[in-house]
Nucleic acid binder design. Structure first.
Lengths: 352, 352
DNA sequence: TGCGTTTACTTTAACGTTAAAATAACATCA
DNA sequence: TGATGTTATTTTAACGTTAAAGTAAACGCA
């Protein structure tokens, strides 16, 4: 178990100083190195199979104030749903894993690595940001309101995905047009003659995506002269189990309901199963529309009509934003909106 | 943008030396510190909101040969499937995301962080292991045969999940009893009177999980006096698309087939859809059994009979193993086998 | 009393890297 | 000819932490 090959080993192999090796390897534009020396250094590094020590780089770079470079980007995935709703897993929603997949490649290609972390309900993720000297942070679905000022003082480029409420003075944002999605889904049902439209959604927390989808739902209803009926709004949790539970409740009173808008596909799948378990057929007895267009939406039976948000695009945009924000600390604090699209499949029946 | 609070700041605040702070904070058992001093240090650290710099710790710890501690565990997820089969995403199989979710908490609780990395097809993941001084590595589904000797020379505790072929002299292993799973699934079909049983699986690479499931399939057939028929074996890729494709092919010749064993649930779902698209009904016209028991297996329609592997358990075991291997470098190189269980749902019809 | 031991610290040096300053050889120009 | 600049390199110091070595006072005990 030998000591790791360091820059000094490369230096002595090439017959130069350590700095020279560093300059060559980093292609430092402030220093001129002769072609011949460069070649010697490069081949020595290759010969010794040299790999730079990132911890040393991180530490060394912190010498220049505020310039610490860990080449590490954190992705924080909050545990939002309570355990008893079956959300025992960080990625219980396939949305997250697709998003992560889409993120990883561009980030790796740019020479960064991804640290994935959940959050302990009480504990903050501030510690990892500081102890690891993260170059950037991507936060999913949670607005870090608790100690916003403190967090901002770290001055770490941060992209908020699927959160509202930040004022754009510090955070970058990547969002779907949730209001529009809620509106489109509901209008789709209304246009097909549905009037008694239930909503199954997660908690309607301020700054969350669900309130906006809810508002879109309300406004579409109003536009068609339908007064939103709070007894048709099931705001529990995002997930299969809650969808099934809501469907069970709805099943007891089906003459009140002709269609359901579930604000996420996994919830919609739950609704589907809950109805089926109660002998209610989709779309014959009730229509259903989801949100997200996860893979299952197209492979379930019947295939789910849904609002497609391009998750891959979202991941790529988040990656692009964080990388841009890291390399240009003055990048304007933009909020990018990802487009969406209604995908008609087989769960909505037209009544007209 | 002030300099980060370092151990020296804490030291001078508490009126002691930096080492004393280090000793107190790490509860170093080789050094005695008076209760009074400890208290002063602790409150100074709290006061200044001190967070240790992990890069400095990593670098410092590398002084003692072979004792480098980065508190970082890498999880390597190889891109095994070719793009054209729709496996555009690292986590296209929900199995991976569930596994990752189950891993993350125990690892975080133990004070480690998780670096997630895919692999560029050509490029090796060796570099990240060395440059980040990973304390441990978990590799999913790939046997690092290319430069095994070189990798072993790094001497980084490594858990191989779902790979065979390592001889247990260096790597730790977490596996499902894939042979048994293949056997059980096939026997289940045989016992219900099926004889013409097709297999839809990924590539039958040596050291992969699919060969073992395949062998279990063959042996069960032989046990029931059925000669395996290679024209019934579809060995393409793991994924929805390939399952659907295989089903399309099978649909052309249904009198040859009465049941299908798909060696992963996502493939099974693909098969299900492929058959449905061709007007073939499950389980009336053909029976189907999967493998994994991903969440969707229970929520799809009809609910999928499958071999359940406890993915959460697998994640926890992998986490436990890697943590144990890190803290005890002499831990015997065990291979843990996760049990499995046949879950009867609605896709297998009995012919007897 | 004197010597070894224990307690409670402090000082030093090192981990691998790189920015900045220093150096030295050589070229350019007034 | 000497001042100035350029090129190519080396030396130095610093990042934050901690293991190891050092120190000094207090204690135990023969």
């Amino acid at each position: 178990m030998r000591r790791q090959v360091s820059i000094k080993d490369v230096a002595s192999e090439a017959g130069v100083s350590a700095s020279t090796v560093s300059y060559v390897l980093n292609e430092n534009p402030n220093v001129t190195i002769s072609a011949e020396t460069r070649e010697r250094v490069l081949s020595a590094a290759r010969e010794l199979n040299y790999v730079p020590n990132q911890a040393a780089r991180t530490l060394g770079s912190s010498r220049v104030m505020g310039m610490t470079e860990s080449k590490l980007i954190g992705i924080v995935i909050p545990q939002t749903e309570p355990e008893h709703y079956g959300a025992r897993l960080m990625f219980s929603n396939p949305f997250y894993s697709s998003f992560l997949s889409a993120l990883e490649l561009p980030i790796r290609s740019a020479g960064y690595h991804l640290i994935v972390s959940g959050t302990n309900p009480g504990q903050s993720y501030f510690e990892i940001v500081r102890s690891r000297a993260l170059d950037g942070v991507i936060i999913l679905g949670m607005y870090p309101s608790d100690d916003e000022e403190e967090y901002i003082s770290f001055n770490v480029p941060t992209v908020l995905v699927d959160c509202y409420g930040c004022d754009g003075r510090f955070f970058y944002g990547v969002n779907t047009d949730d209001y529009k999605g809620g509106y489109l889904a509901t209008r789709h049902l209304l246009e097909r003659g549905h009037r008694k439209i239930a909503l199954v959604t997660g908690q309607l927390k301020e700054n969350g995506v669900n309130v906006l989808r809810y508002r879109g739902y309300c406004d579409a209803l109003e536009e068609f002269g339908v007064r939103p009926d709070s007894s048709l709004v099931f705001a529990g949790y995002v997930g299969f189990e809650y969808g099934a539970e809501a469907a069970r409740e709805m099943a007891a009173n089906m003459n009140n309901i002709s269609a359901v808008f579930a604000t996420s596909d996994i919830t919609a799948i739950g609704v589907m199963n809950g109805f089926r378990a109660n002998g209610i057929s989709i779309p014959k007895d009730v229509s259903l529309i989801g949100f997200d267009d996860i893979e299952y939406a197209s492979t379930c039976y019947p295939p789910l009509t849904t609002i497609r948000q391009n998750i891959e695009e979202k991941g790529k945009r988040a990656a692009g934003l964080i990388l841009a924000a890291i390399s240009n600390r003055n990048l304007p604090r933009v909020k990018e909106i990802i487009g969406l699209e209604l995908i008609e499949r087989a769960t909505v029946r037209s009544l007209v």
